[in-house]
């Protein structure tokens, strides 16, 4: 299990290398990196979170993914604090013997992060980003 909630940026290549280093049993490694898109109200946003609950929620999502798919390893990183457009905000890495499990588990984890992990985005213009119905609907296919 490996979950990080951090203000600092992360290095995608280093994360992938760390997970695969010294092993040859992994057949599929899927990574997803979420970036901050340009916004109408300015190019910076602040990501607030709930320290304590955030880590627990991410660990629970990872445990659920491991229960559903044959994962050899998994890594989730989510940033908080001020973030500029173009910055990396979230990272999911899944490893499995075959690609289908790695692809599906990564998608499952992202769908749950979107609306079940306690983060809230506020744009520099002053407005809180509303939850999207499409994100809530995306959870439906996993239930």
């Amino acid at each position: 299990m490996s979950v990080s909630v951090q203000a600092e940026d992360f290095d995608v290549g280093a994360e992938m290398a760390a997970l695969t280093s010294g092993r040859a049993d992994i057949g599929a490694l899927v990574s997803f990196t979420g970036l901050v898109r340009e916004m109408a109200g300015g190019n910076e946003m602040v990501l607030e979170h709930y320290p304590g609950m955030t880590e627990k929620a991410l660990e629970a999502i990872e445990a659920e993914a491991r229960g559903r798919w044959e994962l050899q390893d998994c890594r989730i990183i989510h940033r908080y604090g001020p973030l500029e457009a173009g910055a990396q905000i979230v990272f999911v890495l899944t490893a499995s013997p075959h690609r289908q499990a790695a692809f599906e588990a990564a998608e499952f984890i992202m769908d749950f992060l979107k609306s079940r992990a306690p983060f809230w985005k506020k744009e520099a213009g002053g407005g809180w980003v509303d939850a999207r119905e499409a994100d809530e609907a995306a959870l439906g296919r996993w239930c």
């Binding site: 709930y50 992060l113 992990a117 306690p118 809180w128 980003v129 809530e136």
Partner: peptide, 24 residues
């Protein structure tokens, strides 16, 4: 732990209120 409005808070140490989450 995420829960509903009808949930018991007997013995709870911490209750948090927030808008729908917007992670990822």
């Amino acid at each position: 732990e995420l829960t509903e409005l009808g949930a018991s808070i007997k013995g709870a140490r911490e209750v948090a209120f927030f808008p729908p989450m917007t992670g990822g």
